[in-house]
Design a protein around this nucleic acid. Structure first.
Lengths: 219, 219
DNA sequence: AGGTGTGAACCCCTTCACAGCT
DNA sequence: AGCTGTGAAGGGGTTCACACCT
């Protein structure tokens, strides 16, 4: 179900373009997936399409938003106001997609008290109070790797049950808590891996067309 | 092979702790995966372990780094110096992980000429020259969604063959070019989806223990 | 005894192909 | 005629379990 958000974005895009009805093929192109996959995914939510016609874009968008749980706004806490944390705190796209920065936390005295997008940075010790006050269930970790586990522990201890981890570290949490990880270096390294293969293939078979080589080498 | 970077990080961590030898089970815990999976992954690289003993941490780390292609430094270009682009440009972890910010590009006159971490922001029109000059093959897109496709086209046209896309948009590229996508909103929406299920389960079966519910609900 | 390397079973996701509805 | 919804086939990755090496 990790593709529902992608479909949601594609539908929003189509609505902005004034499209009222779209076939699974249209949606699949907009979302960058196979149309059979998209139809099967949507069929799990119910029969929201019309045979011979397609899907009502507006209606389908609402159904997916409801399925994901975006009919409410989710308050989130961001821990670690370094470069990345500050960027996220200032990110305007948050609000339009069902989320709201409700709390910012750090331990650096130079950062505590500063204001990002109308929210003031507080000391990490106030975490539990803020989680309670704003009914926060989602935490974002943008700290250095070595302290990510401690921060995760404190988030969980404060009642947070979902964590988005940007820190370069593996964090372990009790069952019942969800963790998702975003790691810039890992993404780049995966690209580098493929890059290396591309140039090696070129060296081994200099006569081959670059596109052909790429197709053979790609996963 | 998307797990090699994770293993690499785990090995680096063990080296910092002074560990010389580790079993597949040790490594699996450090990397947050199953030990059988880890052994199978490593076996594709060759037989770098010793039965009855485990893996030589330092040696294995080098082999993985070589496999990924991190024996060289990869120059990258970052397009779009908004909040996120600036954060990445200032990110120190880049250098220690095999990458180097070689070029920064934008079209906003207020940003062009500014200096981030010793690199000056240039106009997007200079992209091809910079890619050529620094031999850049990896581009990072941190622009607003609506212009991401154009930027990707220009990157590809300039000779870039790998793109890391942070913009909230699906971009299409010719075969032979790799794209990886990182989308904050999507990650949060996936967490929200699970959060919604947690609270619904609690409402439906108020007598159930939260952990048990979570285990049943989780994928 | 301890731990790797790996065949084999397993499971889940993707893709095909088409029946059936409008 | 067109397009959805879905059974069935297919493929890839994960996990088990153990032979084999040190």
């Amino acid at each position: 179900m990790a593709r529902l958000p992608v479909y949601l974005r594609a539908l929003t895009l189509l609505i902005e373009r004034g499209v009222a009805t779209a076939s699974s093929e249209d949606l699949a192109v907009a979302a960058g997936v196979n149309s059979a996959k998209l139809r099967k995914d949507l069929s799990y939510l119910g029969s929201y399409g019309t045979r011979g016609v397609g899907y009502d874009v507006e209606y389908l968008r609402y159904q997916i938003a409801r399925e994901i749980g975006l009919t409410q706004d989710w308050p989130v806490a961001i821990v670690g106001l370094g470069n990345l944390g500050q960027a996220l705190a200032n990110y305007a796209g948050f609000g339009t997609r069902g989320f709201r920065v409700a709390a910012l936390l750090d331990v650096d005295p130079d950062r505590i008290g500063r204001d990002f997008g109308g929210v003031v940075v507080r000391h990490l010790d106030e975490l539990a109070d803020l989680v309670d006050e704003h009914d926060i269930s989602i935490g974002v970790v943008t700290t250095p790797g070595p302290v990510a586990q401690q921060v995760a522990d404190r988030l969980v201890g404060s009642g947070v049950t979902s964590i988005l981890n940007f820190a370069p570290a593996v964090i372990t949490v009790p069952s019942g808590v969800d963790v998702r990880k975003v790691d810039l270096s890992i993404e780049l390294q995966i690209l580098a891996y493929h890059e290396q293969r591309k140039s090696m293939a070129g060296a081994l078979h200099p006569g081959l067309d670059i596109d052909v080589v790429a197709q053979v080498v790609a996963p």
